[in-house]
């Protein structure tokens, strides 16, 4: 496969990413997060990496271990944000949740949802994007395990959901 056409996968970069000057309009931010050593915990990252290979204009895709406070700066620059995470609640289907910024800081704990980051973006930078969370069922999170077949299916479904979500919101 050739390089992604318009989307960009960021595993981390330099200064420009965390500029203190938000407001790049019409930008889509996708963040898949989890621990890629822990089996299905990496499902969100796997989905992000597949999405990064697709032609999506004006889109930034992140694959990260966990959500961090500085992601709020990126969120403030985005028109729309889609988080993709593994879900160990026992739910067997891929779920989509529309996010409401929540003024709690539980988001810094890995177990928490990203609503806090949206609220932080609004509080610090005065702007927060339309946010969505895709939950991919996680079955096995053992050290060194590959994605389970169920999680693989969930990743595939999540990618399709994201594509539809983007299409419907543009």
């Amino acid at each position: 496969m050739g390089k992604p056409l318009n989307s960009c996968l960021v595993l981390g970069s330099g200064f420009s990413q965390f500029s203190d000057a938000p407001m790049l309009a019409h930008r889509l931010l996708i963040i898949g997060y989890g621990n890629d050593l822990r089996g299905d915990d990496a499902a969100g990252r796997a989905a992000a990496e597949r999405l990064a290979a697709l032609p999506m204009p004006d889109t930034q895709v992140l694959s990260v271990h966990q959500l961090m406070p500085e992601h709020a700066a990126l969120l403030a620059q985005a028109h729309m944000a889609i988080f993709i995470d593994a879900d160990s609640s026992g739910c067997q289907v891929v779920r989509v949740t529309h996010l409401t910024p929540a003024a709690t800081w539980s988001a810094i704990d890995h177990a928490s949802a990203p609503e806090g980051l949206l609220a932080l973006a609004a509080a610090v930078y005065g702007r927060s994007p339309n946010g969505w969370l895709i939950h991919i069922p996680a079955i096995y999170c053992d050290l060194g395990a590959p994605l389970s077949p169920q999680a693989e299916d969930g990743v595939t479904e999540a990618v399709e959901i994201v594509r539809h979500l983007i299409a419907s919101c543009r």
Partner: peptide, 16 residues
């Protein structure tokens, strides 16, 4: 905090 993270990013190419 961003400043510390950026030093790591500049050196390592990946913050995390």
């Amino acid at each position: 905090r961003q400043f510390g993270q950026d030093i790591i990013a500049v050196l390592g190419g990946s913050k995390i």
